[in-house]
Amino acid sequence: MDIFLTPFAAIGAATLAILASIGRVVMYAAQTFMHIFRPPFYPRELAAQLLHIGYFSLPVVGLTAIFTGAALALQIYAGGARFNAEAVVPQIVAVGMVRELGPVLVGLMIAARVTSSIAAEIATMKVTEQLDALVTLSTHPMKYLTVPRVLAALIVVPMLVAVGDTIGIMGGYLVATGRLGFNEAAYLQNTYNFLEIMDVVSSLVKGAAFGVIAAMMGCYYGMQSERGAQGVGKATKTSVVAASVLILAANYILTEAFFSA
């Protein structure tokens, strides 16, 4: 009898565990947002995080975007040639970058660069009792650590996405005009005419959502860290995986919300 029930019990237990951890993350997020509006505030911490998450991510965002835009232009040209539609390169590059690739790539880069460093830093603070020390010094770790990071990501990741979109389009432009014989002025004109306000808005909203997810996952798993160096390693790994998966899932949901007719 047990032999038949064991697999089901295991599945049931796993399902419960997943639901419980989703519940904890949601609770954590709700608490963070409540703390955003309640003093004390830590403007210095926020400024430091704006710099760390935003400014220092510019190189990696720029590099990712330019190569992706360039490759996209080549692919669309080659693909379009199969049914004599090579001319759509500027339009498709623009839509592809702004609606999808810009926000997703920036989101994943932030997950790699920012989520991991937040998780490792906070997890180390946890295992070396620095979080306990914060509490005994009457400072709430969520207000002092989580809120500035999440707020900074909310503000600055949409800006990074805007930069990424623009540089991606420029990458496509460079390849299209340099290698594929497109006219410079016409390319830009086509891009500009084709993009709609909603494309740009969706891009920025996605950026904000992905930024919040990335920072929140880093803080959450950092604070959940188990003891020792292994605990820190595990927290870091889990946070990056969780942030990446959630960003891709959120991307699908937001795309449905914005563009499903």
Binding site: T128, E129, Q130, D132, A133, L134, V135, T136, L137, S138
Partner: peptide, 18 residues
Amino acid sequence: DAFLAQFGMLFQGGALFD
């Protein structure tokens, strides 16, 4: 906050903010 304001604590490992 008021409760903890009465306390000072030296942690066994120091727990300094690095």
